[in-house]
Nucleic acid binder design. Structure first.
Length: 365
DNA sequence: ATATTCCATCGCGCAATCCG
DNA sequence: CGGATTGCGCGATGGAATAT
């Protein structure tokens, strides 16, 4: 608890500092831990002058804010606002949220609702009638890291499964079993989606189920995340007599089969299978489960590492779990469409076009 | 029973440091 | 002075406890 008090102080101090940094502005904390009306309370009241306009900020402090939290908290704060405006103070009262980090979706809601906000990244929004302030700073590093974490590691795996089965209602256990992540991780992934209001919820307790509602926003967010990430390491090889990528894929299948190595073809070749676009492709991209099996498979193919003129690219996989197989078509294992899409985004050149094509054919519905 | 939260452990990314 | 290397701290992870 003491720790929470500390961070509350820290956030308030940061807010005051930001307010005072505005030209012609003044601000001070008038009260903290305020009781308002029958059962309302606010974390602080801040009196401020901005553009010579007297304002009263009704402040609520949170650690982080997602759309879900925002909707829950706004009506409460509105209530308090109503009580305060009956108290004879003629300053304009602005409901206001302060948090360590505020998700992009939450910011949007604040602006729609004309509720003020401030986060540690320095973003400041004060929707006063005569004193309007809007400073949009990129979210702080720690913050973005937190919001992006759903696209990383095991959660990304779970998320892929959720996307694949976006028509279905999923329980935590279903998801855990189907995607190979622990129930804890499955639960947290779904909870995070809930906070972003990207899933519908049905039932509660052990019979709780969720279904992806906002497939498109999810895809948007994932796209911009993937575009910002640096591409994973790709090892390039030349396989003799492998000029045709499809034919090479068949030999890859055989080589991996002999080495009992899991693999999944991705990139242009996979995109071509899901949503035909280009006619000739000469480079095959895939993931192969790492370790001895990978070495064996490469040996079976007689693949040689090269810098130029490669026809086989192996995307670095940290474990067997990174090698997600979507389906097997004509004797070749392909990564699921979403994975292919993400891989295309990370690659360069023409592949971005293919990514967009694949998305419109397979993913946007 | 399953879902959620908590906590100890693990792994990764970052930064200060050392070496060429 | 630039680049690799090791040490450190934070966050992800999944098992265990707890809630529903």
């Amino acid at each position: 608890m003491a720790e929470f008090e500390n961070s509350e102080r820290e956030l308030l101090d940061a807010l005051l500092e930001a307010l005072l940094a505005l030209p012609q502005a003044h601000a001070q904390i008038e009260q903290s831990e305020v009781k308002i009306g029958p059962r309302g309370e606010a974390d602080a009241l801040i009196g401020a002058f901005i553009n010579r306009q007297p304002l009263l900020l009704l402040v609520e402090i949170k650690a982080q804010l997602f759309p879900r939290d925002v909707r829950e908290a706004i009506w409460q704060l509105r209530n308090n606002q109503a009580h305060l405006s009956n108290s004879g103070d003629d300053r304009e009262i602005i409901p206001f949220f302060v948090a360590r980090a505020i998700s992009p979706g939450a910011r949007e809601i604040f602006r729609e609702e004309r509720v003020g906000y401030f986060d540690l990244g320095g973003s400041l929004y004060i929707p006063g009638k005569k004193a309007f302030i809007f400073l949009d700073k990129p979210a702080p590093k720690k913050g973005t890291k937190k919001f992006d974490s759903i696209f990383q590691g095991q959660k990304a795996r779970a998320l892929q499964e959720i996307y694949e089965r976006r028509q279905d209602w999923l329980g935590v256990k279903d998801l855990a079993d189907a995607s190979g992540v622990s129930p804890a991780t499955a639960s947290e992934t779904l909870t995070e989606l809930e906070r972003r209001e990207w899933v519908d919820v049905q039932g509660a307790g052990p019979s709780k189920q969720r279904r992806l509602r906002a497939a498109r926003p999810l895809l948007e967010a994932w796209t911009s995340y993937a575009s910002d990430q640096k591409a994973p390491t790709v090892r390039r090889y030349y396989v003799p007599k492998g000029s045709d990528a499809l034919e090479l894929a068949l030999r890859l299948d055989q080589a991996c089969d002999e080495a009992t190595a899991a693999y999944a073809v991705t990139g242009e070749v996979a995109a071509q299978i899901y949503a035909p676009y280009l006619s000739s492709i000469s480079q095959l991209r895939c993931r192969i489960e790492p370790g001895q099996k990978l070495i064996e498979a490469l040996l079976n193919l007689d693949a040689r590492p090269v810098a130029e003129g490669w026809n086989l690219g192996i995307i670095e996989a940290k474990s067997r779990r990174d090698v997600a197989v979507g389906q097997r078509i004509d004797g070749v294992c392909y990564a699921p469409p979403l994975q292919v899409y993400l891989d295309l985004l990370q690659a360069s050149g023409r592949s971005r076009e293919m990514a967009m094509h694949l998305r419109s054919e397979c993913l946007d519905k």
